[in-house]
Structure formats: C-alpha cells, structure tokens
C-alpha cells in the first residue's frame, strides 16, 4: 500500500514552518509508523533532500521520546499506545496522513516534528522525588504497603513523560503529567513527609512554565499511552487544597514548599 504524508517541516526553532506533502513508496502494512518514516527519509536522502526530523528511541512505547500528532491526534488513532506503536495497517491505502509536532508554548519546536519538552524536567526538579540519600534506606519490607495503594501508585508511576496530555488538551495543560507524579508519591508512605510541600512546589513550577489550566475535558486521559486517569488530577487538587490550608495555619513544611 501507499499513502501520502502531509508533514510539518520547520528548519529550526525560530524559522517559519509549513506543511509539505510526500508520497511514500510501497509499504508493508505490518511496518510501524516510524519505520515508514525511516523509509521515506532514506528516499529523501537519496533525492538530495533533508530527511524529516522526528524524535524516537526505544520504539516499544516506554521511553516517551516519540511525539507525533497523527491526523490531529497525539500518538495516532489507537488508544493506549505511543506513536512508535502505531502501525501502517491502521491507515487506508492512498490516504493522506497529516503529521505534526506536539504544539504548546512550553514545548517549542526544535526542528520539524521534534519539540523541546525539558519543561517537564524543570517541574520534576522542584519536588518529583523522595528526599532519600543513597545508603540511608531501611529494609524494603519494614513498611508494608497495601496492594491496592501500591497498585494505584503504579498506575500513576507508569507515566512515560511523553507530553501527549499537553498536546491533546485544548488548553495545553500539564495537569495530568504533574498529577501522575504527585499521585504516585502521594499514595506511598515514603512520599508522605514531603507530600504537601511537593504539590505546592510542582504546581508552582508548572504554572511558571506557561502551561494552560485544567478544564476537566478528559482529552489528556483519552490520548495517554498509559491510560492515566483524571482521578489523579482530583487527588492533586485535594492535596493542593490541604496544602493551602496547612500553610494557612502555619505548618512549616508547607511554607518552604511554597517558596519553590
């Protein structure tokens, strides 16, 4: 089968971008979407044109590097997968497929389909951790954790940090990402000492990056490759409220966090 690709080409961060259309050679339907781009890029190279830049690495849906918006949908037509887990068989022979980068002010385009998502790292650096030094840990079984809490923490911890939630949200909000991080640690006993400090600091950092706000549309969860759900946003809002109240009554930990 063959398809036409309408691809966003942008030579650099400050350059103007535009769509260009390319006809693919004959494709095997079992090819992955990224393998199709590899094939197209090899053809472009031989024709003397610059290949399409796109972010990728593990190609098995876990590293969170790939970040295509395919026909308007982050990570393509299927649920619960990353762009690299999209296959050519999901498209029709002769179809024109539009491929664009994730679009959000905090995710500037670097080139073509590659965007800069280091904003997530900056949010993480103010609180996305448990402050434990190497070597200072007690025995792993010294604190039992209910399987239910642990499983829920894992639901959140699965986040691959791809940013599809931001790309899909009409407000380019990063609430699902941040809430997954806050939720994962907030559900575990190890995360309790810094729980409220963390939520204040991370939300503050999120706002500083210029992400939009949550209007509870649910688009983020619908495109999330790991199907992280909106409940984590609810939890984060609740933690935030508690943190504000704690700070109001002058709990020290909360105060420090707010400075972050």
């Amino acid at each position: 089968m063959r398809v036409n690709l309408k691809v966003w080409r942008q030579p650099g961060p400050h350059a103007r971008g535009e769509f260009k259309t390319y006809a693919t050679p004959d494709l095997n339907p079992d090819m992955s979407f990224l393998e199709m781009l590899d094939v197209v890029n090899d053809e472009l190279t031989l024709k003397g044109e610059e290949p399409i830049a796109f972010a990728h690495d593990c190609r098995e849906g876990i590293c969170g590097t790939c970040s295509l918006v395919i026909n308007g949908k982050p990570h393509g037509p299927h649920r619960a997968v990353a762009s690299c887990q999209t296959y050519v068989r999901s498209f029709k022979d002769g179809e024109t497929i539009t491929i664009e980068p994730f679009r959000a002010k905090p995710f500037p385009v670097i080139r073509d389909l590659v965007t800069d998502r280091t904003a997530f790292d900056r949010i993480m650096s103010v609180g996305g951790y448990v402050s434990v030094r190497t070597g200072a840990a007690p025995d792993a079984n010294s604190i039992p954790i209910s399987k239910i809490d642990s499983d829920r923490a894992m639901d959140a911890a699965q986040c691959i940090g791809c940013g599809a939630c931001v790309a899909a949200c009409k407000n380019a909000s990063a609430m699902l990402f941040v809430s997954a991080k806050v939720g994962h640690l907030g559900l575990l006993p190890q995360g309790q000492p810094e729980r409220y400090r963390r939520v204040l600091a991370m939300v503050n950092a999120m706002d500083d990056e210029g992400f939009g706000n949550c209007t509870v549309t649910g688009s983020c969860a619908a495109v999330c490759p790991k199907e992280i759900n909106l409940d984590f946003i609810t939890r984060m809002n609740r933690d935030y409220l508690v943190a504000l109240v704690q700070e109001g009554v002058g709990r020290k930990g909360a105060k420090e966090g707010a400075g972050g």
């Binding site: 308007g72 539009t98 664009e100 002010k105 899909a168 009409k170 909000s173 939009g212 649910g218 688009s219």
Partner: peptide, 23 residues
C-alpha cells in the same frame, strides 16, 4: 492563560477525543 499556552493550532484540527461538547 489557556489561549497563550497554545499559540499555534493544529493543521489537521484536533480533539476533542471523547470530551463532551459542553466541556
């Protein structure tokens, strides 16, 4: 803030991925 967070829109249109019209 929401408008400024998404300065450029998607060429192929996008969403709402199951979100209600109301939202």
């Amino acid at each position: 803030q929401n408008n400024s967070a998404r300065p450029s829109t998607y060429g192929a249109g996008t969403g709402p991925f199951g979100a209600s019209w109301a939202s």
